[in-house]
């Protein structure tokens, strides 16, 4: 398993790096959209796929990252903190939000957790819509700064593609390392049988909180990139549908597996672009697909292979 991964990974990476010039501006833009969802998927996968916590309010942390960046890097307050400084800041903000929500709600059992997180996502959106002086309400935040290094400004679809690509590599690397560690094993054990895991010495609350905050911080990065890339953000960008989309892409792709997340994002975000003509049936098909998926292939298209570590060779 590990060896095939070693061979294929560089090929896939190389292919993806060479992709934009081959497909042109428009499709590079689309790939960028997919890429952001891949990042979100990798993050939510830590929460849902690894730790088994159903979070339906993931969009909240995405929104926190996006507004965190937009407020401090736009004419809204006249503050212009550089993107690279704000990036860790957004991670911290989102992680803080995750901890703040996680501490009270993680004691709840799974289905309550789903509803409360869903409620939290909605509360954040309602607040963004109504806290006018801070968020400018439904009018949104405009003219958000693009990331820059000296004179090099990330402002074209090509440049964004590579920036997002780097973000994905980073997220995937972190998620993969966590998954194959003492922490990842604790998550899986907890997902399998919470009581038994506790008796085996795993501090359940701590590991749930850890998954929740790590997942949230990935969304923080995604949010900052989204805000900087769009240049303007509105509360409506952060509706429940974002949470549902991200959740669905990991389920369709295969819960717990990173290639699965990528495939899921391509299917979910990319396919509608290809099938523009039947756009109106997209969500209909999608809802039906989810049901069918649960019944016929609950593990997704690329289920995570529970692989062993290199160490063991």
């Amino acid at each position: 398993m590990m060896n095939t991964k070693k061979i294929y990974l560089p090929i896939v990476v190389l292919f993806l790096l060479l992709l934009p010039p081959m497909v042109g501006n428009y499709w590079t833009q689309v790939l960028g959209n997919i890429g952001i969802y891949v990042m979100l998927g990798i993050g939510l996968n830590v929460v849902v796929g690894f730790a088994g916590l159903l979070d339906l309010g993931y969009v909240a942390f995405y929104a926190i990252g996006a507004y965190g960046y937009a407020l401090l890097a736009s004419p809204h307050f006249g503050i212009h903190i550089p993107f690279w400084v704000m990036l860790p800041g957004c991670v911290a903000l989102a992680a803080g939000g995750g901890a703040l929500l996680g501490i009270p709600v993680l004691r709840m059992r799974g289905d309550y957790l789903a509803i409360v997180t869903l409620g939290f996502g909605e509360i954040i959106r309602i607040l963004l819509n109504n806290l006018d002086p801070l968020t400018n309400g439904p009018r949104g935040l405009l003219r958000i700064d693009a990331p820059a290094m000296g004179n090099f400004v990330v402002n074209s679809p090509f440049r964004w593609y590579y920036l997002i690509f780097a973000g994905i590599i980073f997220s995937a690397f972190v998620a993969d390392r966590l998954n194959n560690s003492r922490i990842g094993r604790a998550w899986i054990a907890m997902r399998e049988d919470q009581d038994a895991a506790a008796v085996m010495g795993i501090n359940i609350l701590k590991y749930k909180l850890l998954a929740f905050t790590i997942g949230a911080s990935f969304a923080g990065i995604g949010g900052a990139i989204f805000a900087a890339r769009q240049g303007s953000i509105f509360p409506e960008n952060f509706s429940l549908m974002v949470s549902i989309n991200v959740l669905c892409l990991i389920i369709i792709g295969g819960m717990g597996s990173i290639p699965g997340v990528i495939l899921g994002a391509v299917i979910l975000i990319g396919l509608p672009e290809i099938l523009r003509g039947v756009h109106q049936y997209r969500m209909l098909a999608f809802g039906g697909l989810l049901v069918a998926m649960m019944i016929f292939r609950p593990t997704g298209f690329i289920p995570s292979a529970r692989r062993k570590m290199e160490l063991r060779e």
Binding site: L54, G110, G287, G288, V291
Partner: peptide, 20 residues
């Protein structure tokens, strides 16, 4: 099935019905 499955199926049904 595991507990997540019916919940996700329900979300799917919900999206489906809204769009119908």
């Amino acid at each position: 099935a595991p507990r997540l499955a019916p919940l996700i199926s329900a979300i799917g049904a919900s999206i489906f019905l809204q769009n119908v």
